[in-house]
């Protein structure tokens, strides 16, 4: 069909307004998503950020009951601390994976740590407990050669730390987790 010059001009004006309109909506939605998903909370290391997703509540609760609550947060163990670059790059990678899986409801019935995560946690165990574990005055206890550079993990023996011996849903009753809008802890 043939469009007149006037009609074409009209179409282009409508197109301009529609583009601006949808772009504004998109930008607004983007900020809503950022705010509702508590995205800024992931930059820092507050444990409450991890229970933005309710599936992590059993892990949060078991950490709360463990001695590690006194001085460590989730990220102290589960995110690399050897360099800022590693720290934030891992957060971005891992965080995007968590977000995708959770949004698409792909999370399995039982959540288990991935090999990359295992390496990070193991390194962090050593980072804090270095004096006890690296060769030196206190390191007469068994297993060092297995741990440093070996394939044994600290929690092969220290099984209760920090998420307890009982894993999965059986480890906690249905507990309250701090909601999206509450700053108070339950």
């Amino acid at each position: 069909m043939i469009i007149t010059k006037k009609e074409r001009k009209g179409i282009l004006i409508i197109r301009r307004y529609l583009t601006v309109f949808f772009s504004c909506i998109a930008i607004a939605l983007f900020f809503l998503v950022i705010s509702l998903s508590n995205a800024p909370s992931y930059i820092k290391d507050e444990p409450d950020a991890c229970i933005n997703c309710h599936v992590m509540v059993p892990q949060y609760v078991s950490w709360e009951k463990d001695v590690h609550k006194l001085g460590t947060t989730c990220n102290d163990c589960h995110v690399p601390h050897n360099s800022l670059v590693d720290h934030f790059w891992f957060k971005i990678k891992d965080g995007l994976r968590h977000a995708t899986v959770f949004s698409l409801r792909w999370e399995p019935q039982v959540i288990r740590i991935k090999p990359a995560g295992i390496r990070v946690v193991q390194n962090n165990c050593i980072r804090c407990h270095e004096k006890l574990v690296k060769p030196g005055i206190f390191s007469m206890t068994a297993g060092q050669t297995g741990i440093i550079g070996g394939d044994r993990k600290c929690w092969d023996c220290h099984r209760d730390v920090p998420h307890g011996r009982v894993q999965g849903l059986a480890s906690s009753s249905l507990v309250r987790a701090p909601g999206q809008d509450s700053k108070k802890k339950d």
């Binding site: 939605l29 998503v33 509702l36």
Partner: peptide
Amino acid sequence: LLTVAVIAVFLLGMVLSTIIERR
């Protein structure tokens, strides 16, 4: 550009709705 803007709104809307649902 227009198509991208429309699709962006749609996808962001879906993301927003899953966030709200799961919360």
